[in-house]
């Protein structure tokens, strides 16, 4: 949907002393990110439709927005963004094939993941066995596991939800 590019304020740019940069120098990256997120929210609250691209910059304060051509994309329902709402977004890992779901690399071993674990893209979260081939199931996002929907050794079909996750901000 929207992508926000968060740039760290650069320490020197141009010859003149920029008062904004002086003020920003006191902020750490986390505060700057929060300021930007608030900025994004403020902008989205007054725009008529969801933009396809949004670029903010704090040093020399630039804002760029892009919308789809009229009629190109149906109008999207406004989705409020922001830190607390972010947490309600739900991600699911779906079974990419028919087979038997396994939570651990071998019987009795520690499970790959449990509820509450943080996962990274590419991290193995389960196995689906199809025709004696062990197919690793990998996480695709930086996220926290909130629910595991399938029991060990249960058979699953294509497209079946396996694990529910909650996205985390990228480190």
């Amino acid at each position: 949907m929207t992508g926000t590019e968060i740039n760290r304020p650069k320490s020197c740019e141009g010859d003149q002393v920029d008062p904004v940069r002086v003020a920003l120098a006191g902020l750490d990256a986390r505060d700057a990110a929060e300021a930007l997120t608030r900025g994004v929210n403020d902008i989205l609250n007054v725009t008529p439709r969801m933009p396809t691209r949004l670029h903010l910059r704090v040093g020399r304060a630039s804002v760029e927005l892009e919308w789809p051509e009229l009629g190109e994309v149906p109008e999207l329902a406004r989705v409020p963004l922001g830190a607390p709402e972010f947490a309600e977004e739900r991600l699911e890992i779906l079974a990419p094939l028919v087979g038997v779901y396994y939570v651990a690399p071998e019987p009795g071993a520690m499970p790959f993941v449990s509820v509450g674990d943080d996962v990274e893209p590419g991290q193995q979260v389960a196995i689906i066995e199809a025709m004696k081939l062990m197919n690793p199931i990998l996480a695709e996002d930086h996220a926290t596991i909130t629910e595991i929907l399938v029991d060990d050794a249960e058979s699953v079909e294509y497209g079946q939800p396996l694990i529910v996750l909650e996205p985390r901000a990228r480190p």
Binding site: V98, G99, V100, S155, Y158
Partner: peptide, 25 residues
């Protein structure tokens, strides 16, 4: 019924592992 794959036949009706798994389960 068992859902064995997406629309393209290569990954469903032409994909033996999915069909064999569906038969086994």
């Amino acid at each position: 019924r068992v859902q064995i794959g997406p629309g393209p036949a290569k990954r469903s009706y032409l994909y033996p592992p999915a069909i064999i798994e569906a038969a086994r389960r």
